[in-house]
């Protein structure tokens, strides 16, 4: 058990990416919702632009009611979480039933929040369950390579989103260093040239976020 194949690598990697995408976009969604209360009612436009999704929302209300829940929109939070589930369900024998359950619980949280929509605050439960999922990844998956492929996906997605959101260089450099540790332990094939260039970019801030983002897209060779 625990033999890593190309297909399984792919599922583990994207499981990491999609769970991170849900986690970070949910957190940013809360920040955006906060801004829309009084300071910037149209902030959802900036939200969509920054994370690179189409702005199909006409009002802030439609954004708040649809972006987390709309299963017909592939950019929505629930769609990304469903993709995480699609990658998790085929890896039950590698990640374990207990670990997988937290993805299911996060999906249930979003469905429940949608059914009883009185406040978007209930979506925080989905964040809790994603954190519990990562806790399980750390705690219950014995195979170091499997663990680190998931974390590599998570780390790369986080970097991609942080760069898109133009977070401070210190945050990005911290996440870049963490991602490199996961990369080494994942034993996946990657382009060393990308790492060399990225290394040199990170020692000479300010970072060019757009260039680093484009560069990292070519890191994993398969």
């Amino acid at each position: 058990m625990g033999i890593i194949t190309v297909d399984k690598t792919d599922h583990l990697f994207w499981l990491g990416r999609y769970t991170e995408r849900v986690y970070t976009t949910l957190r940013y969604f809360f920040q955006s919702a906060d801004q829309m209360i009084d300071s910037n009612p149209g902030h959802y436009d900036e939200f969509c632009r920054k994370i690179g999704i189409e702005n199909v929302y006409e009002t802030k209300e439609s954004f708040l009611l649809q972006y987390p829940f709309d299963e017909n929109n592939s950019d929505s939070i629930i769609s990304n979480l469903n993709r995480a589930y699609d990658n998790a369900i085929v890896m039950r024998d590698y990640i374990g039933t207990e670990t997988m359950a937290y993805i299911q619980l996060a999906i249930d949280d979003i469905h429940n929040a949608n059914r009883n929509i009185t406040t978007i605050a209930d979506l925080v439960l989905a964040i809790d369950h994603i954190l519990a999922f990562w806790g399980c990844v750390n705690d219950m998956i014995d195979n170091e390579q499997i663990r680190n492929i998931i974390k590599l996906g998570k780390g790369l997605e986080r970097l991609d989103l942080y760069l898109s959101l133009d977070l401070p260089d210190s945050d990005i450099i911290r996440e870049y260093r963490r991602m490199k540790q996961f990369l080494a332990k994942s034993k996946l094939r990657y382009d060393e040239g990308v790492i060399n260039t990225a290394d040199s970019m990170t020692v000479e801030p300010p970072l060019n976020h757009k260039n680093l983002k484009n560069l990292l897209r070519n890191l994993i060779t398969e």
């Binding site: 058990m1 033999i3 297909d7 369900i89 085929v90 039950r92 024998d93 039933t97």
Partner: peptide
């Protein structure tokens, strides 16, 4: 499919769709 993946987890056998 639930059963396939659960039995793989519990028996330690490798779950595959044959592609590998």
């Amino acid at each position: 499919f639930f059963e396939h993946s659960y039995l793989a987890e519990k028996t330690g056998a490798v779950l595959t769709t044959g592609k590998e």
